[in-house]
């Protein structure tokens, strides 16, 4: 499988990983391939409440810019501070060290509605068809 199966996906190319009631979010390897080298990730403050499918920040690459969409609603618990010094982590390890935020989800049902890796791969293929 091209995309890991331990996270769930949005049509906007974010991923979400649920561990111990906390959701970590990031952007997919497909997104980083489209963006090219990331030079800046604008993040919300800790404590901000995000709403599912609404924009919460931007990701600037050399060539282009993209809005970041929250996969699920929730309160920002943690931001990946390493990205401010090394935004290239998003390119190098999008599903790992390049994570963006950790959230406390406010509606556990939202996570279950996100795409599986199989559905996401199909979604990416359709975008290219």
């Amino acid at each position: 499988m091209r995309y890991p199966d331990d996270v769930r996906y949005t049509a906007e190319h974010e991923w979400a990983r649920l561990e111990n009631g906390i959701i970590t979010i990031g952007v997919t390897s497909y997104a980083t391939e489209q963006l090219g080298d990331v030079v800046f990730v604008e993040l919300p403050e800790i404590g901000v409440r995000l709403e599912a499918l609404k924009t919460f920040g931007v990701i600037e690459a050399v060539k282009t810019v993209s809005d970041l969409f929250a996969p699920v609603s929730g309160e920002v618990l943690e931001r990946n501070g390493a990205l401010s010094d090394n935004p290239a982590l998003v390119n190098q390890d999008p599903f790992g060290e390049g994570w963006i935020l950790r959230l406390r989800p406010s509606d556990p049902g939202e996570y279950a509605k996100l795409m599986s890796n199989v559905d996401y791969e199909r979604h990416v293929e359709e975008q290219h068809a």
């Binding site: 391939e33 090219g36 080298d37 030079v39 690459a61 050399v62 060539k63 290239a88 390119n91």
Partner: peptide, 22 residues
């Protein structure tokens, strides 16, 4: 390479990374 269409041609947008190539 990742390709992009430009001027009616299929051209390489990048091979390894924009910063490295620059």
């Amino acid at each position: 390479a990742k390709f992009v269409e430009f001027a009616g041609f299929e051209l390489p947008l990048r091979y390894t990374g924009d910063l490295r190539e620059h």
